[in-house]
Simulated scan of single mutants.
Amino acid sequence: MVPRVIDAEHRREYVVWVRFADGAEGEIDLESELWGRMFEPISIPEEFKRVSVDSELGTLVWPNGADFAPEFLYQKLCPNYKLKPTPQSGAA
C-alpha cells in the first residue's frame, strides 16, 4: 500500500496535521526537514503555512514546488511503517 494524504491543515510553526486514506492521522513536525534548495524557501513561517494537499500526488505540496513523498510522511507519523513491495502478477 502506498500511503495517500487526503487532508491536511497547518497547526503551528512547522507542524502539519495530516489524514491518510487508510484513516491514520496526526501531527507531523517537519522543521528538521526544511533544508536544501527546495525546502529552504518554506522554512520561512509565512511560506510554510501555504501548505496544501495535491490530490493527484496524494501528498503535501507548497506553491514553490516543494513536496514530501507520502511514504516519508507516513513513516514520520507511524515510525514502524515499512513500504511493502507490490506483488507481481504473471510469469517472471
Results as ranks from 00 to 15, higher is better:
residue 78 C to G: 00
residue 65 G to R: 13
residue 56 E to G: 11
residue 48 F to D: 08
residue 75 Q to H: 15
residue 68 F to G: 04
residue 56 E to T: 14
residue 74 Y to I: 06
residue 69 A to P: 10
residue 62 W to R: 06
residue 55 S to C: 00
residue 55 S to T: 11
residue 67 D to E: 12
residue 59 T to S: 13
residue 53 V to G: 01
residue 63 P to Q: 08
residue 79 P to D: 04
residue 53 V to S: 02
residue 66 A to S: 15
residue 75 Q to D: 06
residue 76 K to F: 02
residue 58 G to F: 09
residue 49 K to Q: 13
residue 82 K to G: 07
residue 54 D to L: 07
residue 61 V to R: 04
residue 72 F to E: 03
residue 62 W to N: 05
residue 55 S to V: 07
residue 83 L to D: 13
residue 74 Y to N: 03
residue 59 T to H: 06
residue 50 R to F: 00
residue 49 K to Y: 00
residue 67 D to V: 02
residue 62 W to L: 04
residue 79 P to Y: 05
residue 54 D to Q: 06
residue 53 V to Q: 02
residue 57 L to R: 14
residue 78 C to M: 14
residue 70 P to H: 04
residue 48 F to G: 10
residue 76 K to G: 04
residue 50 R to W: 02
residue 49 K to F: 00
residue 78 C to E: 14
residue 66 A to G: 14
residue 58 G to Y: 08
residue 68 F to A: 06
residue 82 K to D: 10
residue 82 K to N: 13
residue 77 L to I: 03
residue 64 N to L: 13
residue 81 Y to H: 10
residue 56 E to M: 10
residue 73 L to T: 06
residue 73 L to D: 05
residue 70 P to F: 04
residue 66 A to W: 12
residue 71 E to K: 10
residue 50 R to P: 00
residue 50 R to L: 10
residue 63 P to K: 03
residue 76 K to R: 15
residue 50 R to G: 00
residue 51 V to D: 01
residue 66 A to Q: 11
residue 83 L to V: 12
residue 81 Y to M: 06
residue 57 L to C: 01
residue 71 E to W: 11
residue 69 A to F: 10
residue 77 L to H: 02
residue 83 L to R: 15
residue 48 F to V: 11
residue 82 K to V: 15
residue 57 L to W: 07
residue 53 V to H: 02
residue 53 V to E: 03
residue 51 V to K: 00
residue 66 A to T: 11
residue 48 F to C: 11
residue 80 N to V: 09
residue 61 V to M: 03
residue 71 E to I: 12
residue 65 G to D: 14
residue 61 V to L: 05
residue 83 L to H: 15
residue 76 K to E: 11
residue 79 P to F: 07
residue 72 F to H: 10
residue 79 P to N: 06
residue 71 E to A: 15
residue 76 K to A: 10
residue 50 R to K: 15
residue 52 S to N: 00
residue 65 G to F: 15
residue 56 E to I: 13
residue 57 L to E: 03
residue 52 S to P: 00
residue 60 L to G: 01
residue 67 D to F: 14
residue 60 L to R: 01
residue 51 V to I: 08
residue 65 G to S: 14
residue 69 A to M: 11
residue 81 Y to G: 08
